Simulated assay, not measured.
Amino acid sequence: MTVHPDAQKFLDLTAGAPPLDTQTVEQNRADLAEAVPLTGDRQDLATVAPT
């Protein structure tokens, strides 16, 4: 079975990554900033309301 190229990029990026609780907040933020572009184009929300 083949993996979608975008999914493979994410898997490659996170392979061997340390657990989140072993890194600093700054490192986790930097890692997230690197991974976000792999999630696709930003989608606008119509509304946000409490449930």
Rank of each mutant, 00 (worst) to 15 (best):
L13V: 07
A7G: 08
A7Q: 14
A30T: 08
R29P: 05
D44K: 10
M1H: 14
A30F: 04
D41H: 09
A15F: 02
R29F: 03
L32H: 01
K9Q: 12
P18V: 00
D12N: 14
T22N: 00
A15R: 07
L13F: 12
L45Q: 07
T39P: 04
V3H: 10
E34K: 15
G40D: 11
G40R: 09
E34R: 15
V36Q: 06
V48K: 11
D12C: 03
M1V: 13
M1W: 07
T24R: 06
M1T: 11
D12W: 01
H4S: 14
D41T: 11
R29C: 04
T24V: 01
A46C: 03
T47M: 09
V3I: 15
T47E: 14
P50E: 13
T14F: 09
L13R: 12
L20D: 04
E34M: 10
A30L: 06
F10M: 15
P50S: 09
G40E: 09
P18Y: 00
K9P: 03
V48T: 13
T22A: 09
P5N: 00
T22S: 09
L38Y: 15
T2P: 15
L38I: 15
L11D: 08
Q43P: 00
M1A: 13
R42D: 12
E26H: 04
Q23V: 01
M1L: 14
V25N: 02
T39Q: 14
Q8K: 14
A35I: 06
T39R: 12
P50A: 10
L20Y: 01
D12E: 09
V3C: 11
P5W: 08
A33I: 04
H4E: 14
T47S: 15
L11G: 04
D44F: 05
Q43M: 10
D31M: 09
Q8C: 07
A33V: 04
L38N: 13
A49M: 12
A49Y: 07
P50D: 12
L45C: 10
Q23E: 02
A17C: 04
A15P: 00
G16K: 00
K9G: 05
D21F: 04
L13Y: 12
A49R: 15
E34L: 12
